[in-house]
Design a binder for these strands. Structure first.
Length: 224
DNA sequence: GACCAGGCACATC
DNA sequence: GATGTGCATGGT
């Protein structure tokens, strides 16, 4: 059981070490959502190249993507890898956006988070992490994003077992911070920063075996 | 040349 | 339900 005290201690250590991360890089909610799909199993540098291509064509806008040939879209996002799959996934998401919300991310924002999450997860190509990234970073909904870094960092520091599923890990963070009395805005800001900090510490200190020395989370809990 | 990077769906057992 | 596999570019 990870206590609230430990969760807050992790956050404080990371924030003290790295400061605000200013996530998610993206100019509009729609661009953030595209980025969430583009970055699947891919580093962010490649995503930036793809977004640059889309921007150069002036097509980072729902209806342009909606009416674009699949092959054209795939060629523009080529630098991210898996470009054929991701082109299809983007089309699926944009079709949903156009069909259900007239292509307007602001209208999507009006839907209850839990209901919207279920509907996003029905879209082919949108799994837990992508759905939560869209909810948190594009739509300001309080959903904690669990990615491979979050998982790895927590396992390395003995906070979770490696057989824990996505929503079990997410539940650790949701348990203490989704009280009705708290304003959503604070939790969204907190989850936003927290996830970005996990990625930061994971990239620097948790990419080799064993953990690198000097990690701000060193000694947070005895390793198993 | 091997390995990794801000996953996901699908087949198979 | 767990495990394996395809998808693919660009950096180290």
């Amino acid at each position: 059981m990870v206590s609230k005290k430990i969760i807050l201690s992790i956050f404080n250590r990371l924030f003290k070490a790295f400061g605000p991360q200013n996530w998610w890089p993206g100019e509009t909610p729609f661009e953030v959502a595209l980025g969430a799909i583009l970055t699947q199993n891919t580093n962010w540098q490649n995503v930036e190249r793809a977004i640059l291509n889309l921007r150069r064509e002036g097509v980072i806008e729902p209806f342009s993507i909606y009416s674009m040939d699949l092959s054209k879209l795939a060629s523009l996002i080529r630098p991210v890898g898996y470009y054929n799959v991701k082109a299809r996934r983007i089309k699926e998401f944009v079709s949903f956006l156009v069909r259900e919300f007239h292509g307007n991310m602001e209208l999507m924002k009006e839907i209850d988070g839990n209901i919207l999450r279920k509907r996003l997860l029905l879209i082919n190509g949108i799994g837990f992490e992508t759905a939560d990234s869209i909810l948190l970073y594009a739509l300001d909904k309080p959903f904690f994003v669990v990615d491979s870094y979050t998982r790895r960092v927590m396992i390395r520091h003995g906070l979770i077992h490696d057989d824990m599923g996505y929503e079990d890990i997410q539940g650790i963070f949701h348990r203490y911070f989704l009280d009705k009395c708290k304003t959503h805005g604070d939790v969204v800001k907190f989850f936003n920063e927290f996830h970005a900090l996990f990625v930061k510490v994971g990239k620097i200190y948790c990419n080799t075996e064993p953990c690198c020395q000097g990690c701000p989370l060193d000694g947070i809990k005895r390793r198993n």
